[in-house]
């Protein structure tokens, strides 16, 4: 029997959690690369965030989603969706577990951090975002 598995059921659209089990996002798309030597495509990264998802879905709704998500991001990387390199992906039983904490992935979950920083943390009783 072959030990290959379905991309659809084990990777695409699955929940991503970081090394500390914090939800990070979902696998909104998977970036493949065709090796120059002609071998089969390899998974180089998983894409996460509404930008990747919007580009994947297409149509008016998808385009809108991608545009809004891109607008909400800052920095020079905003044209490209958020990517997590395949090297950071560990176990993937029910959830896709990363081998690194969210803190090591500065582009991921930007809105979450922005809201924590600008809106929620200032209020009494919110708890600490970074513990």
């Amino acid at each position: 029997m072959n030990d290959h598995e379905s991309l659809r059921f084990t990777l695409l659209d699955q929940q991503l959690v970081d090394a500390e089990d914090r939800p990070v996002g979902r696998v909104d798309d998977v970036l493949l690369d065709l090796p120059a030597d002609g071998g089969p495509p390899v998974v180089v990264a998983v894409l996460t965030g509404a930008q990747a998802l919007g580009e994947r879905m297409g149509g008016p709704a998808g385009k809108l989603m991608a545009a809004v998500a891109s607008r909400l991001r800052s920095g020079e990387h905003r044209a490209e969706p958020v990517a997590i390199p395949a090297s950071a992906i560990g176990d993937h039983a029910d959830l896709v577990q990363l081998t690194v904490p969210l803190g090591d992935l500065p582009h991921v979950a930007g809105l979450e951090r922005w809201l924590a920083h600008h809106l929620v943390e200032g209020l009494p009783g919110a708890g600490d975002a970074r513990d």
């Binding site: 994947r56 879905m57 297409g58 149509g59 008016p60 998808g62």
Partner: peptide, 12 residues
């Protein structure tokens, strides 16, 4: 919706 092409707008 990956391959919907030019007809998409009209259909919408």
């Amino acid at each position: 919706t990956t391959h919907m092409g030019a007809g998409t707008g009209v259909r919408w």
